[in-house]
C-alpha cells in the first residue's frame, strides 16, 4: 500500500467518536472499512457504522467480556474471543450480522485472535498458555501449539502466510510453522516482562504484535520500568526485531510518560509505528519515525485507551476507550 494522500501523523486529530455506554476493551475495523466492531466490559459486541455511528449490538455469543476480535480478509466473518474461553464466529457480510458458530476453545480467557492473510486460518491464544490454529471454513482445530510458559497475549500472522507469531506475559515471542505446527524460532522480548519480588506478581508481557508490510520487521509493544505494577507505574515500550535474525534493532520509548503501557500497535504506510498507550499519565497515540527511537509525535486522547486498530485506508486509527467511546483519529488535516 502506498502512502495515502494527505498522510501526516503530525496533524493527527480525532475526527469522530461514538459512545456505546459500556467501557470498551477491544476494537477491529472490518476490511471494507465500513464498520468497527467493539468488545466491551460485557458479553455484547457493538458494530458501529463509520459513516454515521449507528450501533448494532451482537448478542448471545458470550458469557463474559470480549477480549479479542478478528475478521477474515474478505470481511465475511468476524471472530470474537471471550473470558468464557469461547470463540464465536459471526457472519458479518450481510445487512444484519448473525451468529454462525460457538467453539469452546481455551481453558480460561481467549486473549488474542488473528486471521491469516488468505483467510484460511484463525489463530487463538489464551490463559491456558496455548496457541491454537483453526480452519475458518469448518471451525476444525488443526494444531495445538504448546510451549508458552505464560498467558498468551498477542498474535500476528507474518505476511508470507507461512508463519505465525505469538507473544506471552513472560516476554517470549515464538514463531510457528503453520504447515507443521512446529516452533521454528523465538524472539527475546523479556524486556517487556517484569517479575516483581516485593509485590509477588508477574507483570507486562507482549501486549501487541505487528509486522511491517514487507515482513522484515516485527514490533512488540508493552511496558518497562515497572517500579510499581499494582499501582500502574510503568512506561510504554516497543521493541523492533529484525525478522530474519530475530535480534532487537530498535527500542522505542516515549519520554515523560511515567504511567503507561502499549496495548496495541501497527506499522503505518511510511514505515513509522503508531501505538496506543494508556495509564495514569493518560491515553496517547504515540508515533515513531523509521530510524528514531524516541517518539517524534504524540496525540493526547481525551480518555484512557484500551486498544487500537488501523483502518484499511491507512489514514485513520480506531481506538477503544474506558469511557465507552470508540474514537476515530485521522492521521491528516481536515475531516475527509
Amino acid at each position: 500500500m502506498g502512502i495515502p494522500t494527505g498522510f501526516d501523523p503530525g496533524k493527527a486529530h480525532i475526527a469522530a467518536q461514538w459512545n456505546v455506554g459500556t467501557s470498551m476493551v477491544c476494537c477491529r475495523v472490518e476490511p471494507k472499512g465500513q464498520f468497527v466492531y467493539c468488545g466491551v466490559q460485557g458479553p455484547t459486541i457493538h458494530r458501529l457504522a463509520i459513516a454515521d455511528g449507528k450501533n448494532v449490538p451482537l448478542t448471545g455469543g458470550h458469557d463474559s467480556w470480549v477480549f479479542a476480535l478478528a475478521t477474515t480478509p474478505n470481511g465475511g466473518t468476524l471472530y470474537s474471543g471471550g473470558g468464557d474461553g469461547r470463540i464465536v464466529a459471526w457472519e458479518i457480510g450481510l445487512e444484519t450480522p448473525h451468529l454462525l458458530r460457538k467453539t469452546e476453545a481455551h481453558q480460561g480467557w481467549v486473549r488474542a485472535l488473528a486471521t491469516s492473510t488468505d483467510g484460511r486460518l484463525l489463530a487463538s491464544g489464551g490463559n491456558d498458555h496455548a496457541v491454537r490454529i483453526w480452519e475458518t471454513a469448518t471451525g476444525r482445530r488443526l494444531h495445538d501449539l504448546g510451549g508458552h510458559q505464560g498467558d498468551v497475549y498477542s498474535l500476528a500472522f507474518e505476511p508470507s502466510g507461512q508463519t505465525l507469531l505469538s507473544g506471552d506475559l513472560l516476554g517470549s515471542i515464538r514463531r510457528w510453522d503453520l504447515a507443521t505446527g512446529r516452533e521454528i524460532g523465538t524472539f527475546d522480548a523479556s524486556a517487556l516482562h517484569h517479575h516483581d519480588g516485593s509485590q509477588f506478581v508477574e507483570f507486562g508481557g507482549v501486549r501487541g504484535l505487528a509486522t511491517s508490510t514487507d515482513g522484515s520487521l516485527i514490533a512488540a509493544g508493552g511496558l518497562h520500568k515497572a517500579s510499581n505494577p499494582l499501582g500502574a507505574v510503568s512506561e510504554p515500550l516497543v521493541l523492533v526485531f529484525d525478522s530474519r535474525t530475530r535480534k532487537i534493532v530498535r527500542t522505542l520509548t516515549a519520554d515523560g510518560i511515567t504511567s503507561g503501557v502499549v496495548w496495541n500497535l501497527s506499522f503505518l504506510a511510511d514505515g513509522s509505528i503508531v501505538a496506543a498507550s494508556s495509564g495514569t499519565s493518560g491515553g496517547f497515540l504515540l508515533f515513531w519515525k523509521p530510524g528514531t527511537d524516541r517518539s517524534h509525535h504524540r496525540l493526547a486522547l481525551p480518555n484512557p485507551v484500551r486498544d487500537m486498530n488501523l483502518h484499511p485506508d491507512g489514514l485513520r486509527v480506531a481506538t477503544a476507550h474506558h469511557d465507552g467511546y470508540l474514537r476515530l483519529t485521522r492521521l491528516a488535516s481536515g475531516h475527509h
Binding site: 509477588f200 506478581v201 507483570f203 505494577p229 499494582l230
Partner: peptide
C-alpha cells in the same frame, strides 16, 4: 500477597 490491585485487578 499481594492483592492491592489498583492496576490490572483481573490479571493479578
Amino acid at each position: 500477597a499481594n492483592y492491592d490491585t489498583h492496576n490490572e485487578n483481573f490479571n493479578f
